[in-house]
Design a binder for these strands. Structure first.
Lengths: 169, 169
DNA sequence: TTTTTATTTCAGAATTTACTGAAAGTTCGA
DNA sequence: TCGAACTTTCAGTAAATTCTGAAATAAAAA
């Protein structure tokens, strides 16, 4: 297969997969373009490669930088900014896990805590049923939260060997 | 806190969280309503509780049933169908993991395999850089895929104790 | 069979989300 | 301090997604 063809397909695919994990299509496509670019590239390159506007490029780049997936690079002798993506997929996965935990899991746990103390407004059976369900979700969420913390903080070798042990159990 | 108030807040919250994991808002709200209903409920109940149309209710219920999160229940002496949700959060999590794996991870792996054999169309350095990136993602995805298989097939006690070990490592 | 009740479908409408492009803002060299 | 190069913002527009409601279908009762 030709390099350019493979790159283009990867960009399109990463764009549609990205929308499943909290990253919109264009943001994921820019990320993909940077992932398969050996050298840093500039805004104009992104605009023309993906046929998107300057504003769109700028906003999605900023979001990628906020996530920590992309960094600005200053090249000697160039006035404009260049961009480059983190290429180690383990680091990428950790960043995404950390961001999603912050945006989704943490607020969920906070919210579940706030509604877990129901005392009235229904029969004992109804209240018990509700409380059991909510507490199950709370405990699960807390364990997931702690697991992500550990995974996001772990070094790759430990993590891979731990996961391999789980898989082979 | 009052039961009804807590239920309503839970439904609203689950609806907005759901949209982060591949379930649209209404689908997640119907799921939440069923999660906090001690007894099975019918289409009319869902329509009036959530103020949504019959068509919307029907389509999202079907999708929840497809996922395996909700089941049809026939009550003695009732002509119409009732619905009830799986309440064990570990089972729910496993179902969601299995569905997302099927819809997202599996196609991704298949796709990455298809573009991993690039031989021409750029300098050796460029090809090597591309291949390294793609193979990193491939290996990662395969490990994730196997891990999810194990988790989805494991019983709760083993899983909890394994996760606790990871967290306390 | 006919009537009644329940379920499903889907075209068009409404809503939500994402994108464009021009104007405003910023930075830097001379 | 001016002008050119580059970056950012955001109102308006476009695209994608979700929802409605009425009609078609199906199933059970009369």
């Amino acid at each position: 297969m030709q390099l350019q063809e493979a790159r283009n397909q990867f960009i399109a695919a990463w764009g549609s997969f990205g929308s499943h994990w909290g990253i919109n299509r264009t943001m994921a496509q820019i990320h993909a373009l940077l992932l398969v670019s050996a050298e840093p590239i500039c805004t104009e390159d992104i605009m023309s490669s993906l046929s998107i506007s300057r504003g769109n490029t700028n906003m999605n780049l900023r979001e990628l930088i906020n996530w920590g997936l992309v960094e600005r690079v200053l090249l000697a002798g160039e006035r404009k900014e260049f961009f480059s993506a983190e290429k180690d997929i383990w680091v990428v996965a950790r960043i995404i896990a950390r961001e999603r935990k912050k945006r989704e899991l943490a607020p969920m746990i906070k919210f579940l805590d706030s509604i877990s103390d129901v005392q009235e407004g229904g029969s004992e059976k109804e209240i018990a049923s509700f409380t059991t369900t909510i507490n199950g979700i709370r405990r699960f969420s807390q364990l997931a939260n702690n697991t992500i913390d550990t995974i996001a903080g772990a070094d790759e070798n430990w993590l891979v060997s731990t996961l391999l042990k789980i898989v082979k159990h």
